[in-house]
Design a protein around this nucleic acid. Structure first.
Length: 895
RNA sequence: GGGAGAUUAGCUCAGCUGGUUCAGAGCAUCUGCCUUACAAGCAGAGGGUCACUGGUUCGAACCCAGUAUCUCCCA
C-alpha cells in the first residue's frame, strides 16, 4: 500500500475548498421545498486580522451551518465586515501620519478617499483567512456595513426613528475619548482598576468680616493647632480640574462643617472664589467630607451643579489639553497639567498630603485612552420603548440564550437601559442626515434634495438654496449599522418584501461573544422587533473568551496568542477546529493549549489510518458473511450515538457532540469494531462485511464532517468512486434506525468486551504479550451468552481455545464477571496465595456492596417512598451482587 | 457598593426532575508493548471526605441556610 502512514492536511485542504466553491455548495437561495437555516456572521472589523477568538466563533458557526446543510436545510451563512469607525479611522490617521499627512489638513472627501483605499487594500484579508478555516459562507452574499445599500438602510432607519420621535439631539455628559476625538457609548467604556492618588488641598476661606471662624476643619492632621482655621481641606484625585471648580460641597448632616454654610472659599492658586454648598450626596467618610464640584468634568458634579444652579466651566479641549478657561497650564495635556499643578500646589504649601487608594478609571475600548466625562451636543436614541419588547422575547424564550445564565445579565441591562449616544465625531462612517438651516434649526431627510424641500417648508423661505444648508458633521456609531445586520444583509429596508428577506429572515442561530451582548445582540433584537415585528434569530450561542493555559486573555502585548494561520499550516484546519472545540462548552472560557490542536491532529491521523486499513482489504467473493454480531452491534452503537449527538446539538452542546463522535470513531469503530472484523494478515475479507464496514465508515465521515470538513471530504472520495456531485459536504446527515434487538446487542457485547478486558488484564499482569495465544475456560449457567460472541472473544482475546467446564482447571488464573467464572490456564506455577488474596478482596467488596443494598431495601420508609422502578433497580443490584458473591466463593473453593 | 454565576480527579469539564454498577469523560500521569492501519499508536493501571459548616430527606455532588474563595455584569 502506497498511502503514507500519516495524514497530510496541507495536500488536500485548498483543493477541496476550491471544489466546494466551484460546485456552489455554499450558495443559498430561497427554496420553498426546503426549510431555511440562516446564520449571519458577526461582522469582524474590516481592517482586522483573524485571531483565536474568531477561530472559535467561526468554527462553531461552520459546524452548525454544515450540519444544517447536511440535514437538508437551505443553509445560508452570510459573511461580511463592519467599518469599525473609530478603530479604522484611528488606523488610517496613524497611517497617514507616517506619510506626513495630518487629518486636519484634509477635507472630509479626501480623508474618505484614503480610508476607502485602505479598506480596499486590507479589507478582504480576514474573509480570505476564514476560507482557510473551512468556513462555508455564501461568499456571493458578502456585505460591508458602509457599502451603499447598507448605508441607505442606516439612513432610512435614522430618518424613520427621528420622525417617530425616538432620536433626539441634546447636551449630555458623554464619554469623551480624547485620543479618538469622539464621544463613545457607555458600552464602549472599559473600567480599569488602578491605584490612584488622592490629593488633599487647602481651600482658603474667604474672610467674612461679620462672622469670624471658630471651627476646626481638619481635625486629624492638625489637632494640636488652635481651633480657628483659615482654610478647608478638600480631597481630589484630579487636582488639574480645580480651575473648573464652581463650588465646594459638604453634607448638611456633617457637624464639622456646620459653620461653613454660606461661606465662600478660594480655589488654590487661582484668585477665584466659590460658594460652599450643602447636599446629602456628599459622603462624610470619603476624603475629608468636603467635595470640590466640577460640573463640566464629572457626571455626579454635573447633576449636583444642575440642582444648585451652578455655572459650568469647561477647561478641556477635545484632545485632552487645557484651554484658556483654565487660566493656568493652558495647552498642557491633562496628565502633564496634573503633575505640574501638584508641584506648584506643594511649593505654595497648599498640598496637605497625598494618599494612594484603589480606584477605577474609565478607558476607551478602542483607543485605550482614559475617558473624559464631557458635556457636549450629541444625538441620542431613546431606548425604553425598544427595550421593553426586546426583553420580553428573551424572558419568554422566543429567543434562547445559550448558556441560559446570560438571561440574568441581559435582563439587568434591559431594565436599566439608558439612551444610546449614536453620534461620533469622526469621518469614517455614515454622516448624520441632519441639515442645519442658517437660523440654526435643522431638518432630517434621506437626501440633500429632500432636506432642501423640507427646509423651505419648515422655514417658509422658498428662496433657500442647497448652499444654505449645512449637513451635520458627525457620523453614526458603527453599532447603528450593525444592529440592522440581520435585516440589511437581505436588503430588508430598501425592499421589505423581497424574496430573500422573506425566506431567510428571521435567522436561526447567532454565535457571538458575551462581551457584545448589549452592544449588538440586544440592539439587533430591538431592530428586528421594531422594523420587521419579528425577532432576528431564535438562538444566541455565546462563546467564551480564548485564554492561554494560565487563564490570561490572548493579547498582542503578552505575545501569548498563536497566529491562527501558522497553526493551520502546522496542524491542518481540521485539527485546529477540533482542538478549539474539545474544551469549549458554551459560555465557558477556553484555555487554549496547543496540546488540544495536537489531539485534533492525532484524531485526523487515526481516521486516516482506519481508512488505510479498510482500503487495503482484498475481497474474496466466495467467503460467507463472517461477522454478523460485530456488524449488528456496531449498527446499534451507531444509532445510539447519533441520537446522542443530535441531542447534544439540540442543546448547543457542541463540545459534547464532538466528543461523542470522537469516541464513536476511536473507541467503538477503531478499537473494537475494526479489530473484530479485520482479517488476519494478508487474508481476504468477505464481501458482506466489507459492504457494511464501508457503509459505517461513510456514516462516520458524515457525522464528522461538520467538525472536520477537509479530511472527511478527502476520505469520502478515496473510499469509493463518486459521482460528479457526490460530496460529503452535501451528503445526508445519518438517521440510522436502531436494530430491533438493539438493547440485547449492546448489553451482550458489553459482557463480551468485559471478558476481553479480563483476559487482557491477565496478559498484563502475567507479562504475556498480545501475540501469545491463550485458552479460556468458562464456568457459567448461561453459556449461550458467550457462544454468541465466541468469534469476538477469540479474536480480541487472541484465544486458541474456548471451553465450558463445571470447574476451573488447575494452574489457571481466574476472574469473575457477573455470575460467571473465567479461567486462563497458564504454563508454569501460579502464585495461588496472590490469586486467593485478589479474589478475597473482590469478595469482601461485593459483600459490602450487598450489605448496603440490603440495608436500603430493608428500610421501611425506602420501600414505602421510592418509586417502583427505583425499587426494581435496587432488587436487581442485590441479585447481581449475590450471583457475583456465589461465583467468587466457588472460585475460591476451587483453588 | 449592588447583582449574577461558579467551586467535582494534576488540568479542562459532564453529571438532565435528589435513588442503576458505593462519582464519569477527555487530556495528563504510571506500567508493559515498535503485536504489518496508526508510537500522532496499542493494552492495562492508579488518581476524587463532589470548597467548608449546618439543615431537609429513608436517601444529597444534586434541595435549603450560612461561610470562604474565584469569575462576570452593573455602579
Amino acid at each position: 500500500m502506497s498511502l503514507a502512514t500519516t495524514y497530510s492536511p496541507a495536500d488536500v485542504e485548498a483543493k477541496w475548498y476550491q471544489c466546494w466553491q466551484e460546485q456552489g455548495f455554499f450558495k443559498a437561495s430561497p427554496n420553498p421545498k426546503k426549510t431555511p437555516y440562516t446564520v449571519v456572521i458577526p461582522p469582524p472589523n474590516v481592517t482586522g486580522v483573524l485571531h483565536m477568538g474568531h477561530m472559535l466563533n467561526n468554527t462553531i458557526q461552520d459546524v452548525l451551518v454544515r450540519r444544517a446543510r447536511m440535514r437538508g436545510q437551505e443553509a445560508c451563512w452570510v459573511p461580511g465586515t463592519d467599518h469599525a469607525s473609530i478603530a479604522t479611522e484611528a488606523k488610517v490617521v496613524a497611517q497617514l501620519k507616517e506619510q506626513g499627512i495630518e487629518k486636519k489638513d484634509l477635507t472630509r472627501e479626501q480623508f474618505l478617499a484614503h480610508a476607502f483605499a485602505w479598506k480596499d487594500k486590507y479589507g478582504g484579508i480576514i474573509l480570505e483567512q476564514l476560507k482557510q478555516l473551512g468556513a462555508s459562507c455564501d461568499w456571493d452574499r458578502t456585505r460591508f456595513t458602509m457599502e451603499p445599500a447598507l448605508t441607505d438602510a442606516v439612513l432610512r432607519v435614522f430618518v424613520d426613528l427621528y420622525r417617530k420621535g425616538l432620536i433626539y439631539r441634546g447636551v449630555r455628559m458623554v464619554n469623551w475619548d480624547p485620543l479618538g476625538g469622539t464621544a463613545i457609548s457607555d458600552e464602549e467604556v472599559i473600567p480599569k482598576d488602578v491605584t490612584a492618588k488622592m490629593y488633599y488641598l487647602k481651600y482658603e476661606i474667604v474672610a467674612d468680616s461679620s462672622q469670624p471662624l471658630a471651627v476646626s476643619f481638619e481635625q486629624e492632621a492638625n489637632s494640636q493647632q488652635p481651633a480657628a482655621k483659615s482654610y478647608i481641606v478638600v480631597a481630589t484625585s484630579r487636582p488639574e480640574t480645580i480651575m473648573a471648580d464652581v463650588a465646594v460641597a459638604v453634607n448638611p448632616a456633617d457637624e464639622r462643617f456646620h459653620d461653613l454654610a454660606g461661606q465662600r472659599v478660594r480655589i488654590p492658586l487661582l484668585g477665584r472664589d466659590v460658594p460652599v454648598i450643602q447636599d446629602e450626596y456628599v459622603l462624610t467618610d470619603f476624603g475629608t467630607g468636603a467635595l470640590k464640584v466640577t460640573p463640566a468634568h464629572d457626571l455626579n458634579d454635573y447633576n449636583l451643579g444642575q440642582k444648585h444652579n451652578l455655572p459650568i466651566i469647561d477647561i478641556l479641549n477635545d484632545n485632552g489639553t487645557l484651554n484658556e478657561r483654565a487660566e493656568l497650564y493652558v495647552g498642557q495635556d491633562r496628565f502633564a497639567a496634573r503633575r505640574n499643578i501638584v508641584k506648584d500646589l506643594d511649593a505654595a504649601g497648599l498640598l496637605v498630603k497625598t494618599e494612594e487608594y484603589a480606584s477605577i478609571v474609565q478607558t476607551s475600548e478602542r483607543t485605550k485612552a482614559v475617558i473624559e466625562p464631557k458635556l457636549s451636543m450629541q444625538w441620542f436614541m431613546k431606548m425604553e420603548h425598544l427595550a421593553k419588547p426586546a426583553l420580553e422575547v428573551v424572558e419568554n424564550d422566543t429567543i434562547r440564550l445559550h448558556p441560559a445564565k446570560f438571561k440574568n445579565t441581559y435582563r439587568a441591562w434591559m431594565e436599566n437601559v439608558r439612551d444610546w449616544c449614536i453620534s461620533r465625531q469622526l469621518w469614517w462612517g455614515q454622516q448624520i442626515p441632519a441639515y442645519y438651516l442658517p437660523d440654526g434649526s435643522f431638518v432630517v431627510a434621506l437626501s440633500a434634495v429632500e432636506a432642501l424641500e423640507l427646509a423651505r417648508e419648515q422655514s417658509g423661505n422658498a428662496a433657500l438654496e442647497m448652499s444654505d444648508l449645512r449637513q451635520d458633521e458627525d457620523v453614526l456609531d458603527t453599532w447603528f449599522s450593525s444592529w440592522l445586520w440581520p435585516i440589511s444583509v437581505f436588503d430588508g429596508f430598501a425592499d421589505p418584501d423581497n424574496a430573500d428577506v422573506n425566506y431567510f429572515y428571521p435567522t436561526n442561530d447567532l454565535v457571538t461573544g458575551p462581551d457584545i451582548l448589549f452592544f449588538w445582540v440586544a440592539r439587533m433584537i430591538m431592530a428586528g422587533l421594531e422594523f420587521r415585528q419579528e425577532v432576528p434569530f431564535r438562538n444566541v450561542y455565546l462563546t467564551g473568551i480564548v485564554r492561554d493555559t494560565q487563564g490570561r486573555k490572548m493579547s498582542k502585548q503578552l505575545g501569548n496568542s498563536p497566529d491562527p494561520l501558522d497553526l493551520i499550516a502546522q496542524f491542518g484546519a481540521d485539527a485546529v477546529r477540533t482542538g478549539m472545540l474539545f474544551s469549549a462548552p458554551a459560555g465557558n472560557d477556553l484555555l487554549y493549549d496547543e496540546k488540544l490542536v495536537a489531539q485534533g491532529r492525532n484524531f485526523a491521523n487515526k481516521l486516516w489510518n482506519a481508512f488505510r486499513l479498510v482500503k487495503g482489504w482484498e475481497v474474496d467473493a466466495a467467503l460467507p458473511f463472517a461477522h454478523d454480531k460485530p456488524v449488528a452491534w456496531f449498527g446499534a452503537r451507531l444509532a445510539a450515538v447519533v441520537a446522542d449527538i443530535d441531542d447534544h446539538f439540540e442543546k448547543f452542546r457542541i463540545s459534547d457532540a464532538l466528543l461523542a463522535v470522537y469516541k464513536l470513531v476511536w473507541d467503538d469503530f477503531c478499537a473494537q469494531y475494526l479489530e473484530m472484523v479485520k482479517p488476519a494478515y494478508q487474508q481476504p475479507i468477505d464481501p458482506e462485511t466489507l459492504r457494511h464496514t464501508t457503509a459505517y465508515f461513510e456514516a462516520l465521515l458524515k457525522l464528522l464532517h461538520p467538525f472536520m470538513p477537509f479530511i472527511t471530504e478527502e476520505l469520502w472520495h478515496e473510499l469509493a468512486a463518486r459521482g460528479p456531485r457526490d460530496y460529503v459536504t452535501v451528503a445526508h446527515w445519518p438517521k440510522p434506525a436502531p436494530p430491533a434487538d438493539s438493547a440485547a446487542l449492546l448489553a451482550g457485547m458489553d459482557k463480551a468486551l468485559a471478558v476481553v478486558a479480563g483476559i487482557r488484564a491477565v496478559r498484563n499482569q502475567k507479562n504475556l504479550g498480545p501475540n501469545k495465544p491463550l485458552a479460556l475456560v468458562i464456568k457459567t449457567d448461561e453459556p449461550a451468552l458467550f457462544t454468541a460472541y465466541e468469534g469476538v472473544l477469540r479474536k480480541l482475546g487472541n484465544l486458541e481455545a474456548l471451553d465450558f467446564a463445571g470447574a476451573g482447571p488447575a494452574g489457571a488464573v481466574s476472574f469473575v464477571q457477573g455470575s460467571s467464572e473465567f479461567f486462563v490456564p497458564l504454563e508454569g506455577p501460579v502464585d495461588t496465595a496472590a490469586e486467593r488474596a485478589r479474589l478475597e478482596k473482590e469478595l469482601a467488596y461485593a459483600q459490602g456492596f450487598r450489605e448496603s443494598v440490603q440495608k436500603k431495601l430493608g428500610n421501611e420508609k425506602f420501600a414505602a417512598n421510592a418509586k417502583p422502578d427505583v425499587l426494581e433497580r435496587e432488587r436487581q443490584k442485590l441479585a447481581d451482587a449475590e450471583a457475583k458473591i456465589v461465583a467468587l466463593e466457588q472460585a475460591l473453593k476451587g483453588m
